[in-house]
């Protein structure tokens, strides 16, 4: 979110305090002082994680501190992980494979590239999953492994976590 506040000592701290008060987690604070602005205010961008449903509460607390929120860009699915699957993907109902992850509600398949060689030869696909939290990503990957075992698919994970 992008915030506008008075350019006075203590204002930034005043703006950050309510975030922890509502259980949020600050990921980055970007603070650029533009000398050209005529007004005596300061623009600050904050990247943060918030528990579901706490945003209105936070906005109220910020307003009480005299901080105005200029813009809120919401990105619900923060974590991304790309894997490769090999096997008889179509014959084993690829849309069911995708569904099983989407059904969790907290993780979803956002991209799928499929290469199908000759008939009866195993096909390969790249699958991108996005999730709200790291734990949800782990859960989604566990689901994918369970499906892969049933359908005899090979899963190739990235070396590093999401």
């Amino acid at each position: 979110m992008k915030l506008e506040m008075k350019d006075q000592p203590g204002q930034l701290v005043a703006a950050l305090k309510p975030i922890s008060a509502v259980g949020g987690n600050i990921i980055a604070v970007i603070h650029q002082r533009e000398t050209s602005t005529a007004t005596e205010t300061l623009d600050v961008q904050i990247v943060l994680e918030l528990p579901e449903g706490r945003l209105p509460n936070l906005l109220e607390l910020l307003r009480a501190q005299g901080v105005s929120v200029v813009r809120i860009g919401e990105e619900r699915l923060l974590y991304e992980c790309t894997l490769i699957m090999i096997g008889h993907l179509m014959h084993t109902d690829l849309s069911d494979t995708v569904d099983q992850i989407d059904r969790t509600g907290s993780a979803e398949v956002t991209e799928l590239s499929l290469v199908m060689p000759a008939i009866d030869a195993p096909s390969s696909a790249r699958i991108t999953i996005r999730s709200t939290t790291r734990a949800e990503m782990k859960r989604a990957i566990r689901i994918l492994y369970a499906v892969a075992e049933q359908k005899n698919l090979l899963i190739i994970e990235p070396l590093e976590d999401a």
């Binding site: 090999i86 195993p122 096909s123 790249r126 090979l154």
Partner: peptide, 16 residues
């Protein structure tokens, strides 16, 4: 043993 050239190409598309 089950890896395919397609899988390697799909990784290559991501500079991997």
């Amino acid at each position: 043993t089950l890896l395919t050239p397609d899988a390697l190409q799909l990784a290559e598309d991501l500079d991997c």
